[in-house]
Amino acid sequence: MEQQHQRSQRGLTHAAADALTACVVFAVGVVMMIDNHRIGAGWAPDGPESGYFPFRIGVILCIASAVVMLRSLFGKERKREIFVPWDKFKLVLMVLLPTIVYVLAIEFIGIYVASALFIGAFMRVMDKYSWVKTLSISIGTGVVLFWLFEMQFLVPLPKGPLEALFGY
């Protein structure tokens, strides 16, 4: 999937994106066939073996993706317009990249601090809210979530050094 996004910067057509996706699906189908063939994809005396259905699903995926691919490459009605224009894709990346950074941050500083930073950064960068508003909403959300999940519902979420300071 990632590859597609980079290509689209150079102007990937809708049909090409279609073909690429079909390639990925085809690969998924092949992997399914191989792995399920390994564990047995036949019809044993007591009914289908564990690989029976997934193997056939893999086969169907391959056939259907081949159809989509051929149609997107040679079909008459294939769409030649750009899949995502770069200026719009920039907007998508503006959410996607921070989200990835956010999830990465959860691993190190815990979900509550990461969430507060994520929300704060979003508000500052996108709509340039005042610091007071930004801080109160972002930190407020973090605190409310902590109160709700850790203290009331007793559902432990990923925590980092800050929470450890408070003995959690």
């Binding site: 959410v95 989200t99 956010y102 979900i111 969430s115 994520f118 929300i119 979003f122 508000m123 996108m126 709509d127 809210y129 909403i137 959300t141 979530l145």
Partner: peptide, 9 residues
């Protein structure tokens, strides 16, 4: 810009 990050969280 406020609700989107909260939804993701």
């Amino acid at each position: 810009s406020i609700i989107a990050p909260i939804i993701i969280v």
